[in-house]
Design a binder for these strands. Sequence first.
DNA 1: AGGGATACGGAGGAATTTTCTCCGGTTGTT
DNA 2: AACAACCGGAGAAAATTCCTCCGTATCCCT
Lengths: 208, 208
Amino acid sequence: MSSPDGLRSDARRNRHQVLDAARRVVLQHGPTVALDEIAKEAGVGIGTLYRRFGDRDGLFKALVLDALAQAQEAAEKADADHEVGFDAIEAYALAALDLRTSALIPMLMDRLDLHDAELGPQRETGAAVLQGLIDRAHEDGSLPRTVTFADLGTLLVRLSRPLPGAVPAEADADLARRQLRLALLGMRHADESTLDRVGMSREELSSD
Amino acid sequence: MSSPDGLRSDARRNRHQVLDAARRVVLQHGPTVALDEIAKEAGVGIGTLYRRFGDRDGLFKALVLDALAQAQEAAEKADADHEVGFDAIEAYALAALDLRTSALIPMLMDRLDLHDAELGPQRETGAAVLQGLIDRAHEDGSLPRTVTFADLGTLLVRLSRPLPGAVPAEADADLARRQLRLALLGMRHADESTLDRVGMSREELSSD
DNA sequence: AGGGATACGGAGGAATTTTCTCCGGTTGTT
DNA sequence: AACAACCGGAGAAAATTCCTCCGTATCCCT
């Protein structure tokens, strides 16, 4: 037991494979997919999945925690690396697209306990970081104030979901990046003829 | 029996309600939803659904045929109404967003028989009309040649899918329209710094 | 308004799918 | 080498979904 998590090396490897497979499969088929499907995609027996995660909700919680941590790391890096607010947003958005976190979380929303002691705060922090990037870009004038959290957040959700049908992952990712670039270009130059009013805030998006 | 389809008035009304409900529910939950779910959303007994459509594939075929016809009508109107190619595309895209046809068809793809005598040609024609709009916009210079069928088509797919999670339909549609406007603005002004190469053609998208 | 044809809802048994435990065998660690 | 940790997946139990059938309701024509 040379590792901090107390897992044997094969167990740790399998754990990661399951988490990776779960991300792909859930994004593709939604939160009701059979767990066997995930195990198969991970190249692992179904018993291994249950042993490691307990049940469906346990797996999903681990999945979201993992994804949130990666996204937050990307956001902090983007924030630190770029002087201009808009450039930080662009860097973060491209990274988030690869992780696909933005789509994963709302897809699992109704199966997740948002008052969970770990999940709640982590999720709150995750959203706050993007909000921070947007505020900065508003303030330095690199992003029009009509473009808001809801616009950017849900754009990432839409672009992060795999296309329905049998589209190769490579083509899908390539198209998503192109579409992100186009939308960002649009955002940068949006005036009142493009968007006739200010978009929704973070609060409006989740409550209303 | 005063009607051409030989249906009684209540039967025809129910048929439409089922088709409408199916569109919403399939977009939200994918092609494997329980048919009971669709019947419930339509406010109709499960027996009525089976009586009218035979089975799942029968329902889906009718659904796609219906959606394709509406989309084609919208495309032809957009084509006729606008002098500039780009404007026609914009008009069509906004209409298609309301219909959500673009997402529906790929979602049902693997359950559909594309060699079906009705489905095949109708689908072919549907795609050809959008291709025609794009060609026109390329030729009159209102759309950069780096932006292709795959870019526009899959953008519409992504924007047409309802957001995952419990987002009210009204907010979802509003966000989708904003995002479409932003992306179109980006497309209009895309140069080689935004898109470094030409996108995929219709053939490349479906085969590769 | 009456009568026949058409259509409706949904209960419930059959069929399918999904869950999740258990244990004989394997692999990693010391 | 020896022990503990881990693995795969068969298969019984549970849950879900399908889809027919029939007593009742609605429509449409005369």
